[in-house]
Simulated assay, not measured.
Amino acid sequence: MTAKKIFTSVLFSFIILVAQAQEEDIFGISNKAKNPKSESGIGNAARNIVEMFAIELSTGAGYHQFGTSFYSENPSLYPLNQIQNFDTPLEITEESPLKMKGEDWTFPVFNAGVRINLFNLLTIGGGYGQEWGNYQNMTGGDFEFPFEGSSYQISKLYGTVGLVLYDANRRRSFLKWKYRRYASSNFYMQSEMKQRAKQIYPWRFILEGEFGQLNLKKSYDPALDISNQPPYSPRLAVADEPYYGLALRIERDFSEYTKLFIKGGAEFRKFTYAASDFSEFQNVDQTLYAMQVGFAIRLPGTKRCKIAGCGVVMKHSHNGIEVRGSSIFRLQNRKIGQWY
């Protein structure tokens, strides 16, 4: 290596170290300082807790499949129709039921919920959702099982538990592992690793499980829905056991407080369909494959700076109390090239 290359490498490393030192204290404001968010200890603890919560809204669409293993000693109690080979008898036993399936679309799906971030490792949350969908008649062999109507509406209360698979922290750990083959005396490569680790990485990948309870609406037998008659129970109803689902959630941060996310996965549900005299019922399974797009806002625990004439746009402190200099929709500690 020539003396010119050695000098260039040393100079480059010195410039990087100076830039890193300046980043820790820009305009006399320390990014690493852990200033309280309130003048009282209780208020500071409350604001730290508030900042763990995020409110989110999402919408999307899905494709669902449903089916049943039909068996009854009295098939005439169900709307079972023969669609071809009309002279074929219905031969079913408890060990060999009639497999019937159907499929259709759901749109739109709307969810509103709250989420808590736990140490950038786990997320827990819950919320309320509405779903509108269509269903076609189930078919199996030479027989058809028609539903009373072509659409349904479902409301749901749900909870979620998520495991963070990859984010900025895990990216930094991956970079350290990737650069492990370079010696600590290799200042150029070590500086490159540190610079890449300090870059803002806005993506987050979460494996998420969902569970909850459904409430089926607007799916009643028209033959029972007669005016001036007492209300009747629906023949198609949600089973008592909760539903569950599994999904991959991809988040993209726009600031420390706002993000856009895409969530895709499957939900597994169970319904029951009662006989015409409600003496027995059939189990109906539904699998919903859905894709959602949503927006989330994390509640700010740090107050907005209200000091007249203070033009600092980063997080900073006044009298030892941390305040924000920017809207929650902007990056608080922006770097070069991110000011506008």
Rank of each mutant, 00 (worst) to 15 (best):
F143N: 02
S150V: 07
I124S: 04
Q213K: 14
P222R: 08
F143G: 02
N134Y: 09
L122W: 14
Q213R: 12
L216S: 00
W177Q: 08
I154K: 08
T160R: 08
M138P: 04
G209H: 00
M193P: 03
F205Y: 15
S155P: 02
L207E: 00
M193K: 15
Q213W: 13
F110E: 07
W203F: 11
S184E: 12
Y220K: 15
I116K: 13
R181D: 11
Y220F: 13
N186R: 03
G141I: 04
Q190S: 02
E208M: 04
I200Y: 11
F174K: 12
K198M: 08
S151C: 03
N117Y: 05
E210T: 15
G149Q: 02
V114H: 01
I206V: 15
S184R: 12
F119D: 12
I124M: 12
I154M: 15
I124T: 05
K194V: 03
L157E: 10
L216I: 04
D221C: 01
E144W: 05
Y128M: 02
S173D: 15
T123Y: 12
P146C: 07
L122C: 08
L216M: 11
R204G: 05
Q213N: 06
L175P: 00
P202W: 02
A197M: 14
G209E: 00
Q213M: 05
F211R: 06
L122S: 04
G125P: 04
R181H: 11
G212Q: 08
K218W: 06
L224F: 13
R172Q: 14
E131N: 14
N215I: 03
Y135M: 15
G162F: 02
M138Q: 02
D167S: 06
A168Y: 03
T160A: 03
S155W: 01
R172A: 05
S185H: 07
F211N: 08
S191M: 06
G126F: 05
S151Y: 09
R180D: 13
G149R: 01
E208H: 03
Y166S: 09
W177N: 12
G140V: 09
L163D: 02
G125Q: 08
G159I: 11
S151D: 12
D142K: 01
Y201C: 01
D142A: 12
R204S: 08
S227V: 12
M138L: 05
T106M: 07
N134E: 10
V164T: 11
G162N: 07
S227F: 15
I206K: 00
R115L: 12
F145M: 05
L122G: 04
G140K: 07
Q213G: 04
Q130A: 11
N169R: 12
P108G: 01
S227T: 10
N134T: 09
G127C: 00
E208I: 03
Q195K: 09
R181S: 12
R170S: 11
Y182P: 04
F205M: 05
Y188N: 08
N120A: 06
A112C: 09
P202K: 00
Q136N: 15
G212A: 00
K198R: 15
K218A: 10
Y152I: 07
S155G: 09
K178R: 13
V161M: 13
S219T: 15
G129V: 10
R171S: 03
N120D: 15
G133V: 01
N228K: 09
T106L: 13
I226T: 15
S150W: 01
